[in-house]
Design a protein around this nucleic acid. Structure first.
Length: 566
RNA sequence: GCCCCCGUAGCUCAGUGGAUAGAGUGUCGGCCUCCGAAGCCGAAGGCCCAGGUUCGAGUCCCGGCGGGGGUACCA
């Protein structure tokens, strides 16, 4: 018998066998059969799975869809995993999973444990998810938090889907923003020694630059001070970046994000390094042209609106050039099968030309996926604040975590689809109350945990429970809901949209609460988990244990904790 | 101007071309002598406008309207 992971494939097999059988018997004309025939009906009253195949075949078969449905349904072989199929107008075949199959899934979930719902669609391919990658010229802000939550959950989902996943942060420690940062830092540093200097016009006005200068002064004294009027030492800028990266790492660690690789932009520029390699390759292809004293990538010949500068007339490479070299390293150097870049939507103008450039240096055209997330609007006390790193006042990710906690922040960030602008209501996220949906899910986990604990106190253990005793609608509904996690993981891995995780988590929690309170609703104490019926109690504890495993898994995928008590 | 994202319930948002469009929150009404009321059950309330494709459109296409973002030898 199949299990949760392959039930859909199994049913598709049964279905296509039935179609072949119907054709062989002459009851169905020999027509081409489209794939992906099994879906999930919205309303489970219509079954656990359904096929619209008859509707799709109707035209080619020249028969009414309902009639086709009848024929195919009749040819579906009897199988222990399903009850006999039903048909519904205008031409659905509805399939209900058998009770014994559902019961067995409790054992399946418990047996697979923390790996429950792992699937194999990734087929062991290597995938890299690069996310946040904010310039180390300031602290992470709330918008970066959205990128962090999305990227990390996506990476987890891809891993669950069977990819070998690496998480990466691209550190922009080269380029003009770094220079501006260094100049600002040196100005702040000099101010601490009572020199009357202003920060550069396009510099970073934020207060954190003063804190950073002070931190460096406290550690290193006046060693970076140069005679008045002279530029600051390059070592100061480098140290500033280093400290800033340290702060960013600390913030992300608090947020529960762990990277496999912190990739330095500067490392692309070693002699004969990636930058040289990538540019040499483009030059070989005749795709670099010199014009107006600068070097341009002839991207318009590859379908872009216009050419883009890769090396400025002053000899310094552009950000675009760095990114070409960086992606050359990802695809050609490190040979990732799939690369997902998670970017803020303000970078969207860059997507097309990066894809073009990646292809030009030899990457497979489908291998680069850029996931854009729209900007975050903050709301506090009804006031709407736009996020801007350049503006003096920002709300940092640290402050957000401090205020609402990492779990709540992650949940809220994930709840919205990346493509939608989101409003982050600080007042709501702060509330440690029932208005806050994040607690709903964690509360369910805590109740599952305490139920097992309470049972243990009374001498009951799930060990040896007989799952075939689980026949109540509320019990079977909970199992059905647990089974959906594999579908959710597959969807996230295919669409790169992790909002399905929190939504599923809420539904699973809701189904559990329904199961848990069924005895109240039906006013039937026999529906309680812990009763005097020892066999029934053990069976239900087994279900509770499996539900806890499933809920913990989805919380874990979202990077949230699964509390034993709250 | 051109390009991208978004318009779904009072509010914040889900919704792989399929069956009666969902959740949270808010409003109203029930439920603690009951394994955790951070909970459960119920009610009211909605697809921006106008065409098209399809057996079938919230979903795809065209055109409007509205909000946001981009269009640098910034990143």
């Amino acid at each position: 018998m199949p299990d949760t992971r392959d039930i859909r494939l199994y049913l598709e097999g049964l279905l296509s066998q039935a179609v072949r059988s119907a054709i062989a018997s002459g009851e169905l004309p020999d027509v081409a059969v489209p794939g992906t025939a099994i879906e999930r009906p919205k309303d489970t009253a219509n079954g656990d799975f359904a096929s619209t195949l008859p509707l799709r075949l109707a035209r080619a078969a020249m028969k009414p869809p309902l009639e086709i449905a009848k024929v195919i349904a009749r040819h579906i072989a009897a199988d222990a995993a399903i009850d006999s199929p039903a048909i519904a107008p205008p031409g659905f075949i509805n399939i209900r999973i058998s009770t014994s199959f559902l019961q067995q899934q409790v054992e399946h979930v418990i047996a697979t444990g923390p790996a429950y719902a792992d699937i194999t669609v990734g087929a062991g391919k290597s995938a890299q998810v690069e996310f946040v990658s904010a310039n180390p010229t300031g602290p992470l802000h709330v918008g970066n938090g959205r990128g962090a939550a999305i990227g990390d959950a996506l990476a987890s989902a891809l891993a669950a889907a069977g990819y070998r996943v690496e998480r990466e942060y691209y550190v922009n420690d080269a380029g003009t923003q770094t220079d501006t940062f260094s100049e600002t830092l040196y100005a702040r540093y000099q101010q601490l020694f009572n020199r009357a200097v202003d920060i550069p016009k396009d510099g970073y006005p934020g207060e954190y630059m003063i804190d950073l200068a002070r931190e460096i002064k406290d550690e290193g004294g006046d060693q970076f001070l140069r005679p008045a009027g002279e530029p600051g030492p390059t070592a100061l800028g480098a140290l500033g970046i280093e400290v800033m990266v340290r702060h960013i790492r600390a913030t992300l660690k608090t947020f529960g994000v762990h990277y496999d690789e912190w990739f330095s932009e500067k490392s692309l520029y070693t002699p004969e390094g990636r930058f040289d390699n990538a540019m040499a390759l483009l030059r070989e292809h005749g795709q670099l042209v010199e014009r107006e004293g600068a070097v341009w990538f002839a991207s318009s010949e590859l379908g872009e609106d216009k050419d883009n500068v890769v090396i400025r007339s002053d000899g310094r490479p552009t950000y675009y050039a760095s990114d070409i070299a960086y992606h050359f390293d990802k695809f050609i150097g490190r040979r990732f099968d799939l690369v997902v870049d998670v970017w803020g939507a303000d970078h969207h103008g860059h997507v097309s030309r990066l894809k073009t450039a990646s292809r030009a240096v030899g990457a497979d055209s489908e291998a680069l996926q850029v996931l854009l997330y729209q900007l975050v609007t903050l709301k506090r006390g009804g006031e709407i604040v736009r996020l801007s790193k350049r503006g003096g006042e920002i709300i940092t990710l640290d402050e957000l975590i401090e205020e609402v906690g990492a779990d709540a922040a992650r949940f809220f960030f994930l709840l919205r689809s990346p493509g939608a602008q989101m409003e982050f209501d600080l007042d709501l996220a702060k509330k440690q109350s029932s208005e806050n949906p994040v607690f709903y899910v964690q509360y369910a986990h805590a109740r599952l945990a305490s139920m097992l604990e309470r049972a243990a106190e009374q001498g009951f253990s799930p060990d040896g429970g007989d799952v075939t005793l689980l026949t109540q609608p509320s019990e079977l509904a909970l199992i059905r809901e647990m089974m959906r996690l594999t579908d959710v993981i597959e969807t996230v891995a295919q669409t790169y949209e992790p909002q399905h995780l929190p939504h599923y988590a809420m539904e699973l929690a809701n189904t559990f609460h329904g199961f848990n309170d069924a005895f109240k609703q039906h006013n039937d104490p026999n529906l309680k988990v812990i009763t005097e019926d020892v066999a029934m109690t053990k069976a239900r504890l087994r279900l509770v244990l499996s539900a806890k495993v499933a809920l913990a898994r989805v919380l874990n995928l979202m990077g949230m904790t699964a509390p034993e008590r709250m």
